[in-house]
Design a protein around this nucleic acid. Structure first.
Length: 167
DNA sequence: TAGGCCATCTGGTCCT
DNA sequence: AGGACCAGATGGCCTA
């Protein structure tokens, strides 16, 4: 949430393209600094002129290719940013769907996944124990900050950090 | 100040 | 060919 998550898309796009802008400017500089009329025909033979024209075209088309590649890259970057935004929103939604997590709690994505996994395990356990009638009761073994009991060693080790550390 | 977390960029790979 | 997805790299922000 530090750089762009709260900014508008336009702002994100702009800030995210600082480097790209520099690259584009560099390529533009190459093009604008190039002057096809720099040398006169009189000083060069026709072959040389032809060669230079071919080189010019090559340089220009290369510049265009580079520009095209760059704009494709920019588009891909924008798509990637959008994709990651969707992912982040999904994490946020998942976090809000976790009960007993205060809304203003700062939860990393990893923590969110671990807690969601724990919560699913908890629900499964409820189903197995056929304790539907108690489903609205606050489960004593799942309380903030997530001191959970009756869990596997792996679960405990993976979420041990959460016990009071992340809040 | 080190470490954790995150957003972004980037190149590679796979799919349509 | 173009887009989606992925993983590594990088830099910024925050906290202990």
């Amino acid at each position: 949430m530090s750089t762009g998550s709260t900014a508008s898309d336009a702002e994100e796009y702009e800030t995210g393209h600082r480097r790209t802008t520099i690259h584009l400017k560099n390529s533009e500089r190459k093009i604008t600094h190039y002057n096809p009329n720099q040398d006169s025909d009189e000083e060069l033979g026709n072959d040389s002129v032809d060669r230079m024209i071919k080189q010019d075209r090559g340089r220009i088309s290369k510049a265009h290719q580079k520009e095209a590649r760059q704009s494709q890259r920019n588009a891909a970057n924008a798509r990637e940013r959008a994709r990651m935004r969707v992912l982040s929103k999904a994490f946020s939604r998942l976090k809000t769907s976790l009960p007993w997590v205060p809304a203003d709690t700062k939860l990393s994505k990893l923590d969110t996944l671990r807690l969601a996994s724990s919560y699913i395990s908890h629900l499964r356990q409820l189903l197995q124990d056929d304790r539907f009638e108690d489903s609205f009761a606050h489960p004593v073994n799942l309380t903030w900050p997530f001191m959970m009991t009756g869990r596997s060693e792996e679960d405990i080790s993976s979420t041990g950090r959460l016990c009071g550390a992340t809040a």
